[in-house]
Design a protein around this nucleic acid. Sequence first.
RNA 1: CGAGGUGUGGCGCAGUUGGUAGCGCGCGUGGUUUGGGACCAUGAGGCCGCAGGUUCGAACCCUGUCACCUCGACCA
Length: 478
Amino acid sequence: MANEKKMVEAITPMDEDFAQWYTDVVLKAELVDYSSTKGFTILRPYGYAIWEQIQNLLDARFKETGHENVAMPMLIPESLLQKEKNHVNGFAPEVAWVTHGGSEELEERLCIRPTSETVFCDHFSNVLQSYRELPLLYNQWCSVVRWEKTTRPFLRTREFWWQEGHTIHETAEEAIAETELMLEIYAELCEKHLMMPVIKGRKTEIEKFAGAQATYTIEAMMHDGKALQGGTSHYFGDGFSKAFDVTFTGRDNKLQYPFETSWGASTRLIGGIIMTHGDDSGLMLPPAVAPIQVVIIPVAQHKQGVLEAARDLKNRLAKTARVKLDTSDYSPGWKFSQYEMKGVPLRLEIGPKDIEQNQCVVVRRDTREKVIVPLEQLEMRLPELLQDVAEGMYRRALENRSNKTFTCTTMEDIIYTAQNKPGFIKTMWCGEDACEEAMKEKAGLTSRCIPKEQEQIADTCPICGKKAKVAIYWGKQY
RNA sequence: CGAGGUGUGGCGCAGUUGGUAGCGCGCGUGGUUUGGGACCAUGAGGCCGCAGGUUCGAACCCUGUCACCUCGACCA
């Protein structure tokens, strides 16, 4: 009977069907809703609030490192998009076009930005005069459109929200340093705030961004062993500058081309949080980005003094954490489940028994451990407990990644592992495109990244047998 | 874009040999409850995805079409 009731809103167990589990969590935690436009989703208040937390953390770091926010047009003339040929080839299959203004057909069709390198370059070419103005360190928060064939909330939608940084520098060294700095900032966001361990590395020629000289990435592993790219940082050299004729007068009074970077992180990170930390009870949010860090649930709230005590706690603790008090008429048990589903890191229960003893019960979302805390100690204990939850989340995520990372030195081993054990496969690689393509055909794996932290696993490439150049991660990606 | 599947109140579903739609959850109202998804009473809510066709009669049969989901190929 009680079971029947549970079934109604139950989340599909992860091990039964991970994809369905994901969809259930996303909808039941009220993060997104589908819209009437295929492939476009609505970020609901709770989902958007998580994004705002991520924005705040990233934006602060961008500002600290000298970047300025700007807003660029969302429509790009076709001729502009065509200027860099690798770039346009990479994006052409997935751009949406505006062909009419009102009832008038446009002379030149306009693409809805899939990314804004071209617009930034065009602008840079208009404003840049002298080396004295460099570097220009710009960022914008916006949404972009890519006409994906199949879509999933957060992971692959036709419109997604992100930030895209675009910078130009006087020298290649400076631009490369910028690319690396931004990758570090993304890694720091993931590791310190989202509690997602990531592998920093470089993309192969095949996997790199259209038009880039080098693409850097942070790769995280989801609970099911698949990879998710958490952010990318590209070094363009002067390729775009030349294509868009961005020039400045150098120190030597000669016309020069600046060196350029771009970097981005998107709402896909939220998908990463869900699939890294979630469990069969639903979402589990890292305290740093949880819109509600502590939910206060009064028990027997109609009894004398309970609501007053709960309100008092809420007011007091508002300075310590993001606190919500739920005084709705649902039963406490219902609220417990509800906020677990929504991933709130800590739950604070206060009822008549607690009030009598001047204490409350705090329950961790990650372990469900109950801690009795004297009311006067809350300001001290809550931050500690939030920290404990965060560390526990990181530890479990790291453990999952370790358990699902396999080192292979032969093709047989790679194929067997790829077919039987979801996760990352680490091997040596000769650096040839042909071997990378063979990996896809034979093992169904794509390269994730050439990790920054290199190690010598073997001397030869397991695919062709020739001398190996680097260690590389393979996997299946979202 | 290939292969498969599903469209019936907000959600999940039932609907027999064709006879004009029902259940659970949720939602509203009143009351009793409250330490792991409470209970009683009462109420609102449905062009059966859409368009044709067959038939005296279609949620059900036929044709077409659209949307969504899953799996592949492509991507943050």
